[in-house]
Simulated scan of single mutants.
Amino acid sequence: MMKATIKDLDLKGKTVLVRADFNVPLEDGKITNDKRITAALPTIKYIINAGGKVVLFSHLGRVKTEEDLETLSLLPVGNRLSEKLDQDVYFVNTTKGEELESAIEDLKNREVLLVENTRFEDLDGKKESKNDEALGKYWASLGDVFVNDAFGTAHRSHASNVGISEHLPAVSGFLIEKEIDFLGEAVLNPKRPLVAILGGAKVSDKITVIESLLEKADKILIGGGMANTFLRAQGYDTGKSLVEEDKLDLAKSLLEKGKDKLVLPVDVVAAKEFSNDSEHAVRDASEIEADEMALDVGPKTVELFEEVLKDAKTVVWNGPMGVFEMSNFAQGTIKVCESLAKLEDAITIIGGGDSATAAEQLGFEEDFTHISTGGGASLEFLEGKELPGIKALNDK
């Protein structure tokens, strides 16, 4: 998947429209984690150093009401970005119109401007999220070239990524280039054995990923709530555990198709209530009691997973092994994270989402080869789907 990158363009004197991912967590108007801003810096600095004018677009949250216009402004992002770049970042608190056009026209080479939250356009008929043709064309008219560096929205066809791409030379930034390199290699040309670890609550969220990986991976380790559906499909009593009854036949067919490729929990941490304070105990997978629910994988399962992982050369992990937010049911996720961090001769990739949060919180961020910036996008990429935001970019 050879897409043109920012290095393929002459940017001097050009107005460069950049779709970044500044969808950062906010609390009382304050940014609580600025990793996404930091991740965008290499692309922004490259344009500055090349003598271009930077115009940044991003969404923030979901805009549904007039109140959201007050609480979901990108102004705090502009302020934080200014600190990180050590230069002024001009902020325009509108998404279109004369004020925005004049501000962009007045930009000098190496200056940076941030446009207000693109999803403010969603109050008027979801124009951003539904890739309104006129909106994409209008935004494209504000610049000379387009750089998409927001992998987190690459699986969505929005006006601010696909829409702009249709009207300008469109290339990837360094972040998307890195995602394509790592995830693409893991899927299309992995060093083997390739082991996938899939967790999270539901089989239905990851059906197509499992089906796709059954053809590509050497082993697939299943944890989290989704493992319960597979355990029930094997005929085990899973008590009050979360089980997708309507997916049992599918789970059976995946087990038949996958045979020994699919590795399921052999024991679990079970509790009577969905609460960190609930009484809990380790049970064999076949011995969950009627009034219990499985909330984490158990120690024997961790050992089993570690045995599989020790020979792996490529590992892709998406989804926690249990209810990671509760300390009593976080050990499975922690142990898997530790096992991956210790692998010395393997390419280890986290597919964003809760797995990435776990690695960051546990201090293992630097021990992974790559942590994806897009949970949903990385999942669809692993499925082998063509992501609209990447498909729209020019080929090399």
Rank of each mutant, 00 (worst) to 15 (best):
R119T: 03
K45G: 04
D354F: 03
G353H: 08
K272Q: 15
G389V: 10
S339M: 06
T357Y: 07
N318A: 13
E98M: 06
M321L: 12
K64H: 04
E66F: 01
E177V: 01
D296I: 13
V115L: 07
P42C: 10
E279V: 03
L382A: 05
G163V: 14
E66M: 02
F146D: 08
V16D: 11
S241Q: 02
T94Y: 03
V24G: 05
P190V: 09
A251I: 00
G376A: 14
E245Y: 04
A233D: 02
C337P: 07
L81C: 04
V171M: 07
I349W: 05
D149S: 02
L393K: 13
K216V: 05
G224T: 07
V269F: 06
K391G: 00
T369I: 11
T314E: 10
L107V: 07
A186C: 08
L75T: 03
E111M: 00
M2Q: 14
N318I: 12
Q361Y: 00
L198R: 05
D345C: 01
T314K: 12
T65V: 07
K178V: 02
A150L: 06
G322F: 02
L343C: 04
L72Q: 05
L262C: 02
A170I: 15
G353D: 10
K259E: 12
V282P: 10
D284A: 08
E325V: 07
G200M: 05
A217Q: 09
D284P: 01
H167V: 01
L188M: 05
I6S: 12
S102T: 14
R62W: 03
T238S: 00
V112G: 09
K396Q: 14
S275Y: 07
E133H: 11
E245C: 00
F182W: 10
D106C: 09
K53P: 04
G374S: 05
S102Y: 10
L107K: 06
A50K: 15
L113W: 03
E307L: 02
T71F: 00
K385M: 14
E215Y: 06
E245M: 05
D345P: 02
E70M: 02
K30M: 09
V115W: 02
D345A: 04
E360K: 14
Q234F: 01
L309G: 08
D246H: 09
A285F: 06
E27T: 13
A4M: 13
G352E: 12
K64F: 01
K240C: 09
H280D: 01
L264C: 11
D122E: 09
L340I: 10
E99W: 07
K191M: 11
H158M: 06
V24L: 04
L183P: 11
Q234L: 12
L74V: 04
S327F: 09
S58Q: 05
L221T: 09
S241F: 00
V209R: 03
V308R: 12
E133M: 08
A290R: 11
N109C: 04
K396V: 14
K53E: 04
G389I: 12
E99D: 15
A134L: 04
G163C: 14
H155D: 08
S286K: 14
I104A: 01
E344Q: 13
L85W: 08
I207E: 03
L387D: 05
D144C: 11
A159C: 08
I222Y: 08
L175G: 03
G223W: 01
D34Q: 03
L221N: 10
N117L: 02
D246V: 06
K342E: 15
G78P: 07
F329I: 07
E383R: 05
E338D: 15
T238A: 00
D21F: 12
T357R: 11
S241K: 01
